[in-house]
Design a protein around this nucleic acid. Structure first.
Lengths: 198, 198
DNA sequence: ATACTTTTAGTACATTTGTTCTAAATTCTA
DNA sequence: TAGAATTTAGAACAAATGTACTAAAAGTAT
């Protein structure tokens, strides 16, 4: 299975963006790394913004696919929350430049900003639904007034743990995602009922 | 009291950085906004990185001054935690471009990255000290194993609420800091003992 | 095989930016 | 006030970048 030029460009761009940040990386750099002319690259993608949009779309697609997979599962909701968030962390980390350059990208590419705002709205409602549902099933016990802050905390953590890790995490690369996910999950711990043992 | 050219440059740069992001803003832009030549500006600050370093230093100085002020207070520790974090949020918001462009700046200016890592180490220990002290005085009740995650959550939130707000907060500008600080403070609420009423 | 489309390399140009330099203007000091 | 130091404006240059264009090469369909 050989990749098309388009796919090779996207893959290489993702690597370079993650390593160096989405500024610092130009169409010429990407082309040079691939050993193709930048003229050719611009034939496929007019500029880096278009590449970023394409990669953002990849991320969204993967997260959507994951959500569909998970909601089909018959596990208990606590397990689903845990698994869903962990695998989201992993996927997000693959596309980490999007979070590392969060504000810059949103400012630069209005289409992504708009889409992301809508996405956050949906995620917030999903979260709310999961929590109230877990509440009803006796998995957690959380006062009504604490729900909104908890969701806000969780979404914020989910978006920015990568940025914090980029600068401050000194441990093993393999443990990075696991460490931050554990800290993420600890947000819910004060409210968990006893029947959760892990 | 008339500002020196140096101070005028720093003030204008801060405004432009906050509005547009620290990339997009060049020495020429700043000079143009001030109505001075960029040659003159470069006489005072060789490039934007130097300006960013100077502004970062201003922020650190203000936060240090605040910490000194607050530790001198005779209020109870809960009040101090609340006040200290709230005023930190306000100061940080004044220099918000540093957080909005967090990763980019740290990658670009190693001196800031090093300093920031050291600063975070200190902050973490301060937090730990406050929490164990509050624990000893019966203000909070938190299991030992939850302390480290709570501190990590608090520091992460403290650094990145501004980025989230920049894209997603739709409310009144005046209420922004208050809203996120409230959410920040809610991190501690599950562990607070009854004698805290606000 | 021929005509057509897609893909590719390479060139060229305008713009922006960082940086340096010079000389004039201003301020300070003795 | 005269001379020195500082500050300022503006020009000049190199490097990087986005963008557009041309023409060749490769691939495809009839």
């Amino acid at each position: 299975m050989v990749l098309s030029t388009k796919d090779k460009i996207l893959a290489k761009a993702l690597t370079l963006f993650n390593e160096q940040g989405s500024d610092f990386v130009t169409v010429r750099h990407i082309a040079s790394e691939l050993g193709i002319s930048h003229g050719n690259l611009c034939y496929h993608f007019a500029n880096t913004d278009v590449i970023i949009e394409a990669l953002y779309q990849q991320l969204v697609d993967k997260l959507n696919e994951l959500t569909i997979q998970m909601t089909g599962l018959s596990e208990n909701q606590l397990t689903i929350l845990y698994q869903l968030s962990y695998r989201s962390f992993e996927i997000l980390y693959q596309y980490r430049f999007l979070m590392l350059d969060f504000v810059r990208i949103m400012r630069r590419i209005p289409a992504i900003k708009l889409h992301f705002k809508a996405l956050m709205q949906i995620r917030q409602e999903q979260f709310k639904h999961i929590i109230t549902s877990m509440q009803a099933n006796g998995f957690i016990d959380i006062p009504e007034k604490n729900i909104a802050p908890l969701i806000e905390q969780a979404l914020l953590f989910g978006d920015f743990w990568i940025s914090r890790a980029e600068i401050l995490f000194d441990g093993n690369e393999q443990e990075k995602t696991a460490y931050y996910h554990k800290t993420f999950y600890a947000l819910f711990e004060p409210y968990l009922c006893g029947n959760a043992d892990w």
